[in-house]
């Protein structure tokens, strides 16, 4: 039973970690907490259900399930990336030199706008993911790990490793790290800052879209306000690991998922959501830099 709870927690944590990466990357570069990030995740889930329904109606899904899921993933990643890019252009770039509070308020505005926009265009009722996936799984003792859980964990870990390699090994990754350290110096040595920022938003949005699709498959039910709580939990995960730190976001995401799952099982399921926020308060009180974050002296 402990093993089963651990598997449930790991799956949840993988999703939190994917969303948290978007928060932490944007924070690392812009020092902006992008509160609209959860809405991008919600948009990813919506687009996946809409495009999958379309493929099902045209009879494509019954021909090749894996290919159609791949098409759905690409459509929704592109769509979410476009939203992330537009969001940066419209709501954040004009405020880049404004006081730090202004882009934060702008982010909350974007979040409210996107929620209501989806509610008005897609209706307020829950959307249901088509029942096309197998319910089966592997048995380990008395625990069951479903194919979907395996898929979610493997996909997330693969994306995290890819992202890590991208940032550490490529030229562009180096430019990103430089920009995160000091925007002005980076631009002086010839790095196109705007380009780096846009790419950061695109990567973050794609990760959030993938998380959205996987959650739609996992729970089978989505709604227009799902991005809010997921966003706050992912933000907690990012803070827990040390905001701005990529490994920290992954660690924070998995830790949060596992703690939530074990908390619900052994302490009280009625206070499941409260665990995330208790953790947030404790971290902010006792170690504001997070588990892996280091305290950086104020930049001059």
């Amino acid at each position: 039973m402990f093993l089963q709870q651990l598997i449930n927690g790991l799956t949840l944590g993988a999703v939190y970690a994917l969303i948290a990466l978007g928060y932490t990357m944007v924070y690392g570069i812009l020092e902006l907490i992008n509160f609209a990030h959860g809405e991008i995740y919600m948009l990813g889930a919506y687009v996946s259900i809409i495009s999958l329904s379309f493929l099902t109606v045209t009879g494509f899904t019954s021909k090749s399930l894996i290919l159609s899921l791949l098409i759905v993933a690409i459509i929704s990643a592109v769509y979410s990336a476009a939203y992330g890019l537009t969001m940066e252009r419209v709501a954040y770039r004009p405020l880049r030199h404004a006081p730090r509070l202004s882009p934060l308020i702008s982010a909350i505005g974007v979040s409210i706008f996107l929620q209501n926009y989806v509610m008005l265009t897609q209706g307020s009722a829950d959307k249901i993911f088509p029942h096309i996936l197998s319910n089966g799984g592997f048995s380990m003792g008395n625990a069951t790990i479903s194919y979907l859980q395996t898929f979610i964990i493997i996909t997330s870990v693969f994306l995290m490793i890819t992202l890590h390699a991208f940032i550490k090994k490529t030229r562009f990754g180096k430019a990103m790290r430089a920009t995160a350290q000091d925007k002005k110096m980076a631009s002086l040595v010839g790095i196109d800052i705007d380009n780096v920022i846009i790419t950061t938003f695109i990567i973050g949005s794609v990760l959030a879209a993938v998380a959205g699709i996987m959650v739609a498959m996992y729970y089978g039910l989505i709604n227009f306000y799902m991005g809010y709580v997921a966003g706050i939990k992912a933000f907690t995960a990012a803070v827990l690991g040390g905001i701005g730190n990529i490994q920290g976001a992954v660690l924070g995401g998995f830790l949060l998922g596992i703690m939530e799952s074990l908390g619900a099982a052994y302490v009280s399921s009625e206070y499941k959501d409260a665990f995330a926020f208790i953790i947030l308060i404790l971290i902010l009180t006792f170690k504001p830099t997070g588990l892996l974050g280091e305290s950086v002296p104020e930049k001059v």
Binding site: M1, L12, V215, L221, M226, E260, A265, Y266, S269, K272
Partner: peptide, 20 residues
């Protein structure tokens, strides 16, 4: 005997404890 949060999407933790 246990309660869950209305509108929650993940009941696996409760169900796993129940199964035991």
């Amino acid at each position: 005997y246990n309660g869950v949060i209305q509108g929650d999407k993940d009941f696996r933790a409760v169900l796993t404890s129940m199964k035991e």
